[in-house]
């Protein structure tokens, strides 16, 4: 564990807390893509199949349980909470996310570290996480306006990815045999998807104005 990895995990956790806070405090999920949230729930469940077979650390197990539970809770709220579900921007959230699931799984069948059920689901989760933000970015682009908490949610999610890249650079330089092509290449692709959002987030922060995305 290095400082970049810890910062990455903490900003990831913070992003989920911001999202839960938004949903809880405003009883609204407007501006949030349910499809992206469903993809994250699939990502965590598929990746943490090793929860019962490999023990790494108490921290690791705790975080895995938090990520699975929070992502399922968010999806549950958006689907079934009587007030929250009414604020869902259904007509804006039309990205065909099943394509992403299918494509990620197909890629995992081709590119994986070992041909075992766990390893294929692990690779699948890495590929799916890389593109899971797309429905969310498309929704924001369509609605144009981004409320503060939604903007901060995506900002922290992007920060988490940026810290993970620094973590890999650090590990590459300090660990003798650190090569993880699948995770690193997917991670760079995932972070690149946030570049546009970060640009507009930075502009609005600099001008102290509300975050707006161009149509």
């Amino acid at each position: 564990m290095n400082i970049f990895r810890l910062a990455g995990d903490m900003t990831h956790l913070l992003s989920i807390l911001v999202l839960l806070l938004k949903i809880y405090a405003t009883k609204s999920c407007s501006g949030i893509s349910r499809k992206t949230q469903e993809l994250y729930a699939i990502v965590f469940v598929a990746r943490y199949l090793d929860l019962f077979t490999d023990f790494i650390s108490v921290y690791n197990t705790f975080m895995k349980v938090v990520f699975i539970a929070s992502s399922l809770a968010i999806v549950w709220c958006m689907r079934f909470h009587p007030m929250v579900r009414r604020s869902y921007d259904r007509e804006l959230d039309t990205f065909r996310h099943y394509f992403l699931v299918g494509a990620s799984f197909a890629l995992a069948l081709i590119l994986h570290e070992k041909f075992t059920v766990q390893e294929i689901f692990w690779a699948f989760s890495i590929y799916l996480e890389a593109v899971a933000i797309l429905p969310q970015l498309v929704l924001l682009q369509r609605s144009g306006n981004v409320d503060n908490l939604t903007g901060q949610y995506i900002f922290f999610l992007g920060a988490y990815r940026a810290f993970y890249i620094l973590n890999w650079i650090y590990r590459y330089l300090t660990e003798p045999h650190f090569t993880r092509w699948i995770a690193c290449v997917s991670g760079v692709v995932q972070t690149a998807l946030y570049a546009d959002f970060f640009y507009y987030y930075f502009i609005s922060w600099k001008n102290n104005s509300k975050l707006k995305l161009p149509a």
């Binding site: 990895r5 995990d9 990831h12 990746r47 490999d54 790494i56 895995k64 993970y164 973590n167």
Partner: peptide, 10 residues
């Protein structure tokens, strides 16, 4: 030396 688990990241 530390044994590094294969998927030790989240």
């Amino acid at each position: 030396a530390d044994v590094i688990a294969e998927h030790d990241e989240l």
